[in-house]
């Protein structure tokens, strides 16, 4: 049956600002299904973003929503979570926002293993400013600021998150719509920092510079490059060239930051008694 998205959407906000074929809308729907599945309460949930196309998501959804400055979402979210640990806190945003200007906040939120869920929509580009390269733009690709091909190597968002200490890291694509809500659901249920990278398409800014003729072509590419982790274990390095792994890439149990701070409070209060 049709999922009732309206129950979580603010009235009168559609159609949204995203371009035709932009996958952010697909991710937003997956996010709402996951929130519904986990039974998150609207008043008790905060959704935080930075700045950029993906960061416009919070404006559409009926929760406590915070659209902050470029790159700062994880740090604002950390303040909310630490001040009110009983709230469910999510961060949404793009690759430039989260991995370039917000990279420091991102890795430190991962390191603390603070209990929040970060949905990073990676469309390889700065879309809102018209298509400049991000740390996730593939080497050699063209953007308005790499007109002769991108000389930069990329950040692998998932590896970065794992290396920094996030205890749940998963990846999927905007094409794999059902996997989006499954992975976000698993992330929400995980205690600690959960990062879900969704490879996304930007037909307007990325597609036009890189000879993707249509939205469909970009979607097909997302379909083609994705390899589930289980399938990948049976594949040769040659077969895996140019592919990306999808599914849960990393999960472990480690002390969660808000709980750690509760112990600090307990120790401080015990010490104060003497």
């Amino acid at each position: 049956m049709a999922f009732d998205y309206e129950q979580y959407l603010r009235p009168g906000k559609l159609p949204h600002i995203w371009c035709p074929g932009c996958g952010h809308g697909i991710v937003m729907k997956g996010l709402l299904r996951a929130i519904d599945r986990c039974g998150l309460q609207k008043n008790n949930t905060a959704i935080v973003s930075g700045t950029g196309c993906a960061s416009r998501l919070p404006g559409y959804v009926d929760f406590n929503t915070l659209h902050t400055a470029h790159g700062r979402a994880a740090a604002f979210a950390t303040g909310i979570k630490m001040a009110k640990p009983e709230m469910d806190v999510l961060v949404v945003g793009g690759d430039g926002d989260g991995i370039a200007i917000g990279g420091n906040h991102f890795i430190h939120a991962c390191r603390r293993n603070i209990d929040m869920t970060y949905v990073l929509m990676n469309n390889y580009i700065y879309g809102m400013t018209g298509g400049q390269f991000s740390p996730c733009t593939p080497t050699g690709d063209r953007t308005s600021t790499t007109p002769y091909g991108n000389p930069d190597p990329i950040f692998d968002v998932a590896k970065l998150a794992i290396g920094a200490g996030a205890t749940f890291v998963a990846r999927t694509t905007a094409f794999h719509a059902t996997q989006i809500d499954k992975l976000i659901t698993a992330g929400l249920r995980h205690k600690g920092m959960a990062v879900i990278e969704v490879l996304d398409d930007c037909p307007t800014a990325f597609g036009r510079h890189n000879k993707f003729r249509s939205v469909v072509e970009m979607m097909k590419r997302l379909k083609d490059i994705a390899v589930p982790t289980q399938a990948a274990s049976q594949m040769s390095p040659d077969q895996l060239r140019g592919k990306i792994l999808t599914g849960i890439l990393h999960q472990e149990e480690k002390p969660e930051y808000c709980e750690q701070y509760q112990q600090v409070i307990a120790r401080a209060q015990a010490a104060a008694k003497f």
Binding site: A46, G59, D62, L66, H67, I80
Partner: peptide, 11 residues
């Protein structure tokens, strides 16, 4: 945030 009121904040 986290009370009975929900709202949107933006820069």
């Amino acid at each position: 945030f986290g009370s009975d009121y929900r709202y949107h904040v933006t820069g």
